[in-house]
Design a protein around this nucleic acid. Sequence first.
DNA 1: CACCTGACTTAGTAGGCGGGGG
DNA 2: CCCCCGCCTACTAAGTCAGGTG
Length: 717
Amino acid sequence: MTVSDDEDGVILKRRKLYNVVKDESDDEENHITGLKSSIVKAEEGDEETKDAKLVNTDNDSPNSDDLEENVSDDLEEDYKWWEEQDKDDTIKWTTLEHNGVLFPPPYEALPSHVKLYYEGNPVDLPLEAEEVAGFFAHLLETPHAQNPVFQKNFFEDFKHVLNDTGGTQNGIEIESFDKMDFSAMHDYFVQLKEEKKSMTAMQKKEIRLEREKFEEKYKFCELDGRREQVGNFKVEPPDLFRGRGAHPKTGKLKRRIRPEDIVLNLGEGAPIPPPPSGHQWGEIRHDNTVQWLAMWRENIFGSFKYVRLAANSSLKGQSDFKKFEKARELKNHIDRIRKEYRNNFKSKLMVERQKAVAVYLIDVFALRAGGEKSEEEADTVGCCSLRYEHITLKPPNTVIFDFLGKDSIRFYQEVQVDPKVFKNLALFKKPPKQPGHQLFDRLDPSLLNKFLQNYMTGLTAKVFRTYNASKTMQEQLDLIPNEGSVAEKLLKYNAANRTVAILCNHQRTVTAGHAKSVAKSSDRIEEFKWQKERLKKGILQIEPDRIKDTPDYFEDINSIDKEIEAKIHERIVEREIQKYHNKFKRENDKRKFEGEEPLPEETLKEWLDNVKQLKQQYAEELATGIVQLKASMNSVEKLEKAIERLDQRISTSQVQLQDREANSEVSLGTSKINYIDPRLSVVFCKKYGVPIEKIFTKSLREKFKWAIESVDETWRF
DNA sequence: CACCTGACTTAGTAGGCGGGGG
DNA sequence: CCCCCGCCTACTAAGTCAGGTG
């Protein structure tokens, strides 16, 4: 291995550029930017200073003189890795210190009155089994609890745990899932949640600060002498595995991880964090060719889970940067690649044709590579694993894709394809192939990727997604005129973002409240229109002749039929009643809290009488067609003004509603975080005078610091 | 070279929280 | 001013892909 050579090289380079602290040194000076000092600071609860530091470091350049000063000023240096040239990335670090991982708290028994019931009888469960039953009880009101696979897997594992811990303690034999009643446990959890929710903001904050203080030491590590944030330092707590889609293993018990299961990865000389008392670490490793700080093997598939650095770390940033540079490099090859796969549609060799068509699908429809999956996983596919039944061919050249992709998200598209592609797909489906058979029977991702490497080193299937996403974003942003308000520009940016998200098929399930909230908005719009109509009638009641002068203006005065109007009245009255009830309750809660007498029921009655009057008034209006407006609405001018305001509100509400609808099933976040070169957004903001905060959240600004600080307006993807 | 393992990126969602509109 | 809804972050599942192995 050449590790030691490289290591020295990296150390020398870094020391020279950034005057990084010496590895072995215990000198206090040298740890100012490091782990130890950060812990001290954290214990002082010094949040202000940290924030100030971030601001202050914005403009400092990492030359050694400045650094000296900064160190003596106790300022954290910024490691601007993106200003460094061609780094060797097989070596990820030279020194690495961290404090290990944070384990979830041990399970605490439920109060003795909260129990699982079996055939109506309370069951005394051993602690471990109670915990597992609790996992299920938590999910009682979710679709998981209704899923037979979930139930079966849960029940199997639950029984195992129960047997291993000696069975129930009151002689009840649990034999059937259907006889188990989790509702008492569930109710208890709901109650706990409500208690937590009803705590005052103060109490919540106190608890949060306490927790943060406790977690502080795990939050940071020291990598090559720099303090960097750790991402997921918390060990995943035990739970029932919640696989997505039709997952054969969903509901299985994800077991508790012990220190003995954990492998820590640190620098050779780094102190080994003490394991929880009475325990030992599974293994200590010193592998500087990997990014992870700790790992363990989970029990569902036997795969690994890793503790790694946060998204804002230099290592992650460098990978990210490399990813986008690789995608940009594809610009120089894409024409040739496209030309060649078109040629190969006619190749005499089946493999070549399959490769050509696969690359076409990946390039044009942004499909994923599509690796083979086992029976133990959900049946989802990507390009190479597409089967006969996933595409339908409609001559002359229409293809309907319908399959479940990553996360069991449906990919459904009816598209026109190149006629030669159509012919080839027909060929790939030709008998003896039938449903269940692979379309690309000569391909797999590894073969395809090796083929792609011929065009460009490092070119793989996923690079096309990044390339096409960022390319599309660039094109969409180019179309936006530099005019209008920031809000308008943002709307257009989001529309561009949406185009990319749709290309990548990034979906989200409509939230539970979505239908309701849409209905509410539509109701509101309907009510605005009704109000408008009323006000116009009001104008005519003051000056009946107006209808002759401007008939168009009054065209809509009877556009709402009586039945709908009655419904609107009902809604408004109902809302008012609800409002007063809430107000009454709130007021009394307050009084109770302050030790005052509650309001008498009389007060509520008085309030509700007002509503009754309103109801009465609406009924009269409906019968007579004569509106009774507020006393202040006593002139045509005032009415016209009010109508204008209503028009404004109607149109903004409609735009908002449309935008919300367009976005309801599309997730913009995934493409923003993973596919759109952040430099595009930075340039957009600079050029269009949009504050970057409007587009990147705080954590995204940290993740994309390299982009924010490295481009000017002329940069293009 | 097929297969597996290990390490990394990409993905949607739950739930807390804060800001804008009634 | 209050409430609600939409945004944000934390979480962890589910992909991709390289490289080792027999």
